[in-house]
Amino acid sequence: MIEELNNRYNQQVTTEPSAAGAFHPAGLLRFPTYLFGKLHKALHAQLDTPLREHWVLTYLAERAEISQQEMANAMEIDRSEVVRLIDSLEKAGLVTRTRDPEDRRKYRLTITAAGNRLRRDTDAKLTEATDVLLARLTPAERETLHRLALKALGYDER
């Protein structure tokens, strides 16, 4: 399959695509990271909840209180973006932000009961959307895809 994509890429394209949505440049399809990006965008399009907010809630659900800086480091996003995310989540009653008693310059973040409910609901939506998106794969192929993605990123197997 990869060799076929590389061969298509190396051939001169002489015809115009019939529809913009149907055109998939072989030069991009040969890169797994491009394909994973397309999968991510397709999944995101099926949900009505911002995934970044879900990631924050999931991280908070797995940790006790953490600082905004710890969240920025864990999410690998700019601290100012974390502030905007937390502002939104706090306004919605999904996260509480309290001053750190040891360092009043810092805030400690905690997920609320409502935040946990939304996280669980979004987990279910993600599972359903993933099932639709990966319907062409067998359960074994899905497991292999997941395992290999974890391995490529350097995470231990589940």
Rank of each mutant, 00 (worst) to 15 (best):
R52V: 08
R63N: 13
L39C: 11
A42L: 05
E62G: 05
H40T: 13
E53M: 09
L43I: 05
A42D: 02
E4V: 02
L43P: 00
H40K: 07
G21Y: 08
T14V: 09
E4A: 10
E16A: 07
K41R: 12
G37V: 07
T15P: 01
L29F: 03
E16N: 15
R30D: 01
N6G: 01
T15V: 09
A45R: 10
L28R: 12
L28K: 04
L28H: 03
G27H: 01
T33G: 05
L51W: 05
P17T: 13
A26R: 01
A26G: 14
G27A: 08
H44C: 09
L35Y: 10
A22S: 12
D48K: 07
H24C: 07
G21L: 09
G21T: 07
A22N: 06
T33Y: 06
L43A: 15
N6E: 12
H24Y: 14
A61S: 04
E16T: 14
L5W: 12
N10P: 02
T58F: 10
N10R: 13
Q12H: 11
W55T: 09
Y34V: 02
A64E: 05
R52K: 08
Q46T: 10
F36H: 12
L60Q: 01
P50G: 09
A20R: 04
P32E: 09
K41W: 06
A26D: 10
R63D: 07
Y9C: 02
R8S: 15
L47F: 04
L47M: 08
E62I: 15
Y9D: 05
E53W: 04
E16S: 10
R63A: 12
L51N: 03
H24V: 07
P50I: 01
P50A: 13
T15Q: 14
R8N: 03
F31L: 15
A42S: 14
G21C: 05
G27W: 01
H44Y: 03
H44W: 11
Y9H: 11
P32M: 03
R63C: 02
K38I: 03
L39E: 06
Q11L: 06
E16P: 06
T14L: 09
V13Y: 13
A20V: 11
T15R: 14
G27V: 00
G21K: 15
N7R: 08
H24M: 13
L47C: 13
A26P: 05
F23S: 09
L35H: 03
T58I: 04
Q11S: 12
H44A: 15
V56Q: 00
L51F: 10
A19S: 15
N10A: 10
H54C: 01
T15K: 15
A64Q: 06
S18D: 15
R52Q: 14
Y9L: 13
L43W: 06
H40N: 01
A26W: 04
L39F: 13
L57F: 08
L5V: 15
K38C: 14
K38R: 02
G37R: 11
Q12S: 09
V56C: 01
T15G: 06
T33N: 14
N7H: 11
H40M: 05
W55C: 02
F36R: 08
L35S: 07
A20H: 11
R52E: 05
H54F: 12
L47N: 04
K38S: 09
A42Q: 06
D48V: 12
N6P: 04
P25D: 13
R8L: 04
L60G: 00
L39M: 03
